[in-house]
Structure formats: C-alpha cells, structure tokens
Design a binder for these strands. Structure first.
Lengths: 109, 109
DNA sequence: CTCTTCCCATCGAGAGGCGATGGAAAAGAA
DNA sequence: TTCTTTTCCATCGCCTCTCGATGGGAAGAG
C-alpha cells in the first residue's frame, strides 16, 4: 500500500543528461552517481534507467558505445551529443519554471 | 510532436490540497486559482483536474458537497479533511526532499 | 435566440516509473 | 574448486497519471 516513489516523475531524462555533462559514463555508473550526489535520495532503479537511456538514444540526445568498465566488465558508455546538450538547457529551464510556479502555490496558499 | 506539459507529473494532488487549505472551493475555481497564483504557468486541464479530485475523495483527503457557485451555477465544493491536511504535510515534505535532491544534481553536475 | 462563460465528468490513448525476472562475467570467500 | 557477491545489461507487464476529445447543462449577455 506504500507508494514509495524514489523519483519525481518526468525528471529522469533531465537528471541523466545533467550527469553526462561531466563526461561519458555507463548506465550503472549514472545510477550510482545520482544516488551519491543526491545524498541517497534519488534511487534510480534499473527498470527505470535503461528505458530512459533508450529514449535518449532514440531522440539523439546521447550516443552509446561498448567498452570495458573500471572493474573490467562489459559496459555500455553513454555520451551527450550536441543536441542532447541543447535539450538539457531546454529541460532545465522548463523544470525551473515549473518549480518556481509550484513553490509560489506552496507559499502563497 | 510537441509535448507541452503544463504540469509537473505527480504534483497535482499536492497542489490541490494546498489550495484547499484556504477554504472550500469548487473544481473550476481550483484550476483558476492555481493558474492565477502561478502566474499562468500551471494550467490544469479539466481532464486532469476531475480525476485528481476523484482520487482525493476516494482516499478521504477531501469531502465534496453540492451547492451554488458565486455565479449562481451548480457546483461541487471540495473541502479538506483532517486526513487530507495531514497528507498535505507528508506530500509537501516529500516534494521538498525531492526538489532539494534534484537541485543538488543540477548544481553539482 | 444564440453565443459565451461557467461547471461537471468520462473515455481512451500514450507515457513513464517500477517490481519481477533473467542473464553474464569478474572477484573474492569458503 | 565451488559459492556468493557485486557489477552490468535489458525487457515485460502492471499501474498510475496526464491530456485531448467529447458530451452535457445552465446562467447571462448581446
């Protein structure tokens, strides 16, 4: 009966894009990084992560390439495309717009 | 091809509950108020609003009563229950938790 | 009498998050 | 050597939520 959402719906793409600004990463690493930066708050399950990455690939926001991880395992590395960088800007702005609006409601009553 | 979401998914219940703290309102009024307070940013369509209100009713967060609007029209007035007030607190806190985490990611890279 | 505004509500589509599931391969423990 | 843990990939099906389309009905303005 508990609805434990570890993620704010509609923000996952934005989060992934942002993390990838730093540089190429594999999926597992992205999830870990999000968790770490957010202080264990943002917990991206693999069944949310990989579909999201597929979306980003399909839209051309990211590119993927197979390689070896730091732990010597087969891993798929994702990289932000120029288009993805642009998209990040768009989504970020839109997000802030929404948050500002919501906060107004939460403060104004 | 444009996906113009006028709402951050998963926040509608919270917004409605918050608006109802002020007092009893009918559905149409709630939508108008959200739009006004948010500076026209939050545009709640009726096909999002009424299902949401049903949810809230079902969960016992709000109560409904038929009456007449300021414009002398048949309207259903929604009122926050004690349970709803409690729920508002929960959702609000959870929301802030999420936002804080997301902002960290957006700033920390 | 018609048009606009106000007010209710549902349906079906599409999207997105998530639990469950299923691999596979490396490293270390037993 | 065998077992378990950790890392890494990915999909399927369920469910929830948002939203465009649709369909009223009643008040007031023109």
């Amino acid at each position: 009966m508990e609805k434990n959402s570890e993620l704010l719906p509609g923000t996952l793409d934005l989060l992934i894009l942002k993390v990838l600004v730093r540089g190429t990463m594999h999926g597992y690493g992205i999830a870990q990084r999000l968790k770490a930066i957010s202080g264990e708050v943002l917990q991206v399950g693999e069944s949310s992560l990989y579909p999201a990455l597929q979306r980003l690939l399909l839209n051309g926001w990211v590119e993927a390439e197979w390689g070896a991880s730091e732990n010597n395992r087969r891993a798929r590395f994702y990289k932000l495309t120029p288009l993805g960088r642009k998209q990040l800007g768009v989504e970020r702005q839109e997000f802030q717009r929404m948050i500002t609006a919501i906060q107004k409601v939460l403060e104004t009553a």
